[in-house]
Write a protein that binds this DNA or RNA. Structure first.
Lengths: 255, 255
DNA sequence: CTGGTCAGCTTGTTGGTACAAGCTGATGCA
DNA sequence: TGCATCAGCTTGTACCAACAAGCTGACCAG
């Protein structure tokens, strides 16, 4: 007799029923009231159980509507493709990827100047609080917030390549612009982490409880020193990152 | 007047105080009772607010003890290092990494035979339900559960390299063993995802609410076809994955 | 037919109570 | 001294009640 608390039993039963398809993705669960009767429990107990499933990312709730089983089609993101250093990394890759997937891309953009945080300063190898230029993208897919991307450039680079600090897009892509200025990116250092979103991130990406964010930090290097640091924040439930390493001729053979 | 619910105000205030160091990592928050008086709210409201912070991964609670601000020292995991294909990928890398960090590694190990799931079958390019050999590792750092690693081998490979199916470690590392059998891994395909843990994963990794898991799926290829699929599950709050791409001579220059 | 209102469903918020169960330090007995 | 016990703290579980607020479809007035 491993007596589990009642609210866990509720969660376990519903979790199993979601797994075996009793409640399919997109379907609505019975209302709290119905579940109260089914499990002979108080509304608080039912809510405790449901909140477990919410924080597991299995269901979501909305006032007036009820609880819905979440569906999760993930979006693949090939991160090592950029090894091809002539590929423009900004905007274009995102636009073509999304369009190829038959979805509609949309992004807002802004440029600002601000002192480097500890994190950014370390990666760009500059003193903390040094001025940096931030180029910030907020990206949507089919009008659903998808990711935010913040790219920081050190001031010495901006002095030499002033268009970085101008508002508005750089049509040919920043990588090509910098290459034309004689600054070529020859290597990347990628860091990937996962955590729960801060309230700010939850607001920007419109995610509720139970959805982690994927943090992708890419530091780009010239032959001499770091020239940019890009921090991309993804919805963890909708994205998967891929890296291809070595010889993968056998991968695309068949299938 | 953007009237926020009281429990959100509680969470906001405490979140800010955690951020600015009023409550440092490792410190204990005031008890629910104290917070009730401070915020003039019922215990339920206080608990609602605290549960927000728990699900954000900022604090954790334990019965009888109280709420504690979580600290997060992350463990760096260099994933692209394995591009050096002579490096044994199993166990050794983990052991040396952890030991170098001044921590104590410990792992349990088991081998079993089971039919391929849809997921595994696709990646190994075999029919679903085909027999595969699973070599499973449960790894600890300083006796804290750290990750689980499940490596699946297709049956055709096991037929040719029978030691894969034997229980117990392969001393020289599976990669070297397979190379000695004439099967060399020449490429990897990595997929990285984040989500909230299933109850099973939460149990194995001993993580509570508010901590996502990082899923690292690595499919290894010979020149002909896929030869293994490794799924590693990390605690998201304690691990960060790194990839080095291209020429990073400038990275280790100074600092 | 159109448009607005509203009843009646849903979840969200806040208050209360009671007891169970885990942890710690003080107490007191051997 | 050493050890068991227990009081008194903590959070965990479970119940009840009431009202707020969001959504939908039915209804009714124009």
């Amino acid at each position: 007799m491993n007596k589990q608390p009642k609210y866990r039993q509720v969660a376990d039963v519903l979790r199993r029923e979601i797994a075996n398809g009793t409640y399919a993705p997109g379907a609505r669960l019975p209302s709290e009231n119905d579940l109260q009767q089914r499990f002979d429990a108080s509304r608080n107990t039912i809510r405790n159980g449901l909140s477990l499933l919410v924080s597991e990312g299995l269901i979501s709730s909305s006032q007036g509507l009820g609880y819905e089983v979440k569906s999760h089609e993930v979006f693949e993101l090939n991160a090592s493709r950029f090894e091809n250093l002539t590929f423009p990394q900004n905007g274009d890759a995102y636009n073509t990827d999304v369009t190829n997937a038959g979805r509609r891309p949309h992004q807002t953009f802004r440029v600002e100047m601000l002192p480097a945080s500890q994190e950014i300063a370390e990666r760009l190898k500059v003193e903390p609080s040094t001025k940096t230029v931030l180029r910030f993208c907020h990206r949507y897919v089919d009008d659903v917030p998808w990711s935010t991307q913040a790219t920081y450039y050190p001031s010495w680079l901006v002095d030499a390549s002033p268009r970085l600090a101008e508002p508005g897009d750089i049509a040919e892509g920043t990588t090509r612009y910098l290459a034309a200025q004689g600054i070529e990116q020859v290597g990347y250092f990628d860091e990937i982490a996962a955590r729960m979103p801060t309230p700010d991130e939850a607001r920007l990406l419109e995610i509720g409880a139970g959805v982690p964010v994927l943090l992708w930090t890419r530091t780009g290097y010239s032959a001499d020193r770091p020239i940019r640091c890009t921090i991309t924040t993804f919805r963890g439930d909708l994205n998967r990152m891929n890296y291809e390493i070595g010889d993968l001729a056998a991968r695309s053979d068949n299938t």
